[in-house]
Design a protein around this nucleic acid. Structure first.
Lengths: 213, 213
DNA sequence: AATCCTATAGGGGTTTTCCCCTATCCTAAG
DNA sequence: CTTAGGATAGGGGAAAACCCCTATAGGATT
């Protein structure tokens, strides 16, 4: 029996996915989350075998950030990212953060089941529109991406800052002290040689820390 | 028995919606379509009572265009638009083309059922994140494209707020007192029924007060 | 072994924001 | 003529952010 956690911010879609997966006798849905923060909390509490995680979610903690948070704490949980997009950039990002699978929303139900079985066995499942050789190349080039000036943590903080969260809210989402958030913020400003918050926002917009579809 | 046609380009989501709706005994799914063109063809051939139509679909014929085509040929069919977005612009467009309902993808399954029942009776169903008075206003202003909830000044202030300018900076740019900026901000929050700054930012992003790209 | 980087956290003081009021002037609608 | 709404402005107090500095633990690099 594979214990699965389903994460998608759209209730209708989430419920649909749950119904779809519940028709398989060897899959047991042990929880649902509607946002990244809750996903992290549930994942660490329930310890599912596999998490089915939508990439695009609101509130700054999208599927990518939530996956990073989860894998930071528990290497045993497998995460399959669910996405509408099959562009290289998204897939590269998924590989970068060590996601175990990547499934498109317009694949067949059976494919999703297959993906869950496969990652549960410890294998990767990346079946997307791109040719397999290209995906292999992305795996090989992992880590070579021109590293951002900002550390991963700083990027997480920045994303939440531009979404307008207070230091306290950010500290809760990341389970750190508000003071640490302050420090990350001022380190970011120093690194980027920015003096004003508005410059920071503009940097974030230019570097796509905000997705406005 | 209400005959329903389900239209969504993402297979997983479409299958999920079908499963969800099939659990209601007085609903019968008479067809599925994965793109706008097929939706129009099926609608005119099968004559469903209600169509559940995703707004965002590829190939030019999205849910809006498909709905217009269908309603042009048959006034008896009711169309409920299904969308991820609850921004003014989208809802305004739905009202403009005379869609019978508008349901968010993150509403509860029961709400979808309720929407289907209600439009089948000939009533409109527009239950979205916006306050009801604002939806009424959009209906009243139908045909008049320049209807925004926020005043011009409020929109100016909002744009500057999301770009991270301080009250003082905004006051200088607009040649008003910082106190007035404060007031505009809290008026905006009150109008939109928002409680947190992060919600304001998200509203602004969703409504394209920020241009990335 | 020593050094650098990252992530964490705090002290203490200044500045800014936020919140809940009140208030005036002007214009448009009834 | 009265009422409503928009734009302006302020008082006063609580909360939060911001700034500068210190500090520690763990990992990677040299």
């Amino acid at each position: 029996m594979i214990k699965v956690l389903v994460v998608d911010d759209h209730v209708l879609i989430r419920k649909g996915l749950v119904l779809l997966l519940e028709s398989y006798p060897d899959i047991s849905i042990i929880g649902e989350a509607g946002e990244g923060e809750e996903a992290v909390r549930l994942a660490l509490k329930e310890e599912p075998d596999v998490i089915l995680m939508d990439i695009s979610m609101p509130n700054g903690i999208d599927g990518i950030v939530a996956t990073q948070e989860i894998l930071r704490h528990s290497k045993n949980i497998k995460v399959i990212l669910l996405s509408m997009h099959d562009e290289e950039g998204y897939i590269q990002e998924a590989i970068e953060i060590d996601a175990d699978g990547y499934v498109l929303k317009n694949s067949q139900g059976g494919e999703l089941y297959h993906a869950i079985k496969q990652v549960h066995k410890g294998e990767k499942y990346y079946k997307v529109g791109l040719p397999p050789e290209q995906i292999d190349r992305l795996f090989e080039n992992k880590g070579n991406k021109q590293a951002s000036i900002l550390t991963l943590r700083e990027q997480e903080v920045l994303r939440l800052v531009v979404y307008g969260y207070t230091n306290k809210q950010i500290s809760e989402k990341l389970s750190i002290s508000p003071k640490t958030v302050e420090n990350h913020k001022s380190n970011i400003m120093a690194k980027l040689e920015l003096k004003q918050k508005s410059e920071l926002i503009q940097y974030a917009i230019a570097n796509h820390y905000i997705d406005s579809q």
